[in-house]
Amino acid sequence: MKVGAHVSISGSRVSSDDETPPYDDIRNAVHRQVAFGGNCGQIFTTSPQVWAQPEISDEAAEGFRTETETQLEGPWVIHSAYLVNLCTPKEDLRRKSKASMQAELDAADKLGIPYVNVHLGAHTGAGVEQGLDNAASVIDELDVPDDVTILIESDAGSGTKLGGEFEHLSGIIDRTETDIGICIDTAHTLVAGNDLTTPEAVDETVQRFDDEVGLEYLEYIHLNDSKHDVGTHKDEHAHIGEGYIGEDGMKAIVNHPDLRDLPFALETPTEDGRGFEWNIEKVTELREE
């Protein structure tokens, strides 16, 4: 089973070797993933709250690739900055979003990471069709490395944000000339109006995704429970099995024949004395051989 967490790369270099001086290093992500019990996962390459370019030395990149190969099953995925808005009609935001995405794609190529995950963003009044057109045009202007794939993440669907409906995901696939994939967030999918609370509901939602988008495009899953119910459009994650999806729904997801072999990255909270280690262990307990 490929399961891990969204881990931080920040801080001094984490090492069991006392002779190694501390320094900021992206290899921290590998060490932290292993410590949590994960074997794949997600990172930010920079602060997601600001427009910043990844700064990764050749030494750190080589070390990251080597340590990933020897210690993890993989694959990693880079999550783009929260500021990126592919759907925007505003030229300045479009330009910044495109530059940020290109930097993340180049970083992924340097690090040997096969995926860059991004939300479609909000059309802010331009309308769904124009928003999807805008997003497709940005994607097609990017120089995507051969071994990297852009993943469009499903959204909770509030306001003018796109990605909450499967139709939006199929719409961007149809519009772009670039080979892209999809990342489903289970919490987002639930609150956007798709039931995942029982095995029967999971089967129905997966079938509808296949009918409207196509399972062949599904490359990654953000595995999160939700603090809010179906159709509420409120994005707040819960511990695995303790939210509205619950143990029955989560067990059905991680064992579903069309989903079980995909990589799962957790973005669960750190609260109530529990964090990623507890949640990864919970997922492995729900998994059936």
Score class of each variant (00 low, 15 high):
11 G>T: 10
42 Q>N: 04
11 G>H: 15
210 D>F: 08
89 P>M: 01
98 K>S: 13
54 P>Q: 12
107 A>F: 11
69 E>Y: 05
84 V>Q: 02
165 E>D: 15
228 H>R: 04
145 P>T: 09
167 E>S: 14
134 N>K: 07
70 T>F: 02
96 K>M: 00
33 Q>W: 07
44 F>P: 01
164 G>L: 07
259 L>I: 05
253 I>R: 02
90 K>F: 08
113 I>E: 08
283 V>D: 01
102 Q>W: 05
41 G>A: 09
70 T>D: 12
263 P>M: 12
15 S>T: 15
32 R>E: 14
176 T>V: 11
18 D>M: 00
277 E>A: 15
282 K>A: 12
7 V>I: 13
230 V>E: 10
16 S>N: 07
24 D>V: 05
171 G>R: 09
106 D>R: 03
231 G>E: 03
81 A>I: 13
227 K>I: 12
61 A>W: 04
41 G>R: 02
159 G>W: 15
59 E>Y: 10
46 T>A: 04
41 G>Q: 01
89 P>I: 10
190 L>T: 02
31 H>G: 01
258 D>A: 15
259 L>R: 10
141 E>Q: 10
97 S>T: 04
226 S>C: 08
47 S>W: 06
146 D>G: 10
49 Q>V: 09
61 A>H: 11
221 I>W: 09
194 N>E: 11
150 I>Y: 05
44 F>T: 03
212 E>W: 01
267 E>V: 11
92 D>C: 09
94 R>T: 00
174 D>R: 08
233 H>L: 11
63 G>H: 09
78 I>S: 03
194 N>I: 03
61 A>M: 15
25 D>P: 14
175 R>L: 07
286 L>H: 00
196 L>G: 12
63 G>K: 10
168 H>C: 04
111 L>P: 08
33 Q>G: 12
241 G>K: 04
153 E>K: 02
156 A>C: 07
123 H>Q: 12
4 G>P: 01
265 A>S: 06
218 L>K: 04
243 G>K: 01
124 T>Y: 07
234 K>A: 11
25 D>A: 12
280 I>R: 00
226 S>R: 10
112 G>A: 15
160 T>S: 12
264 F>A: 02
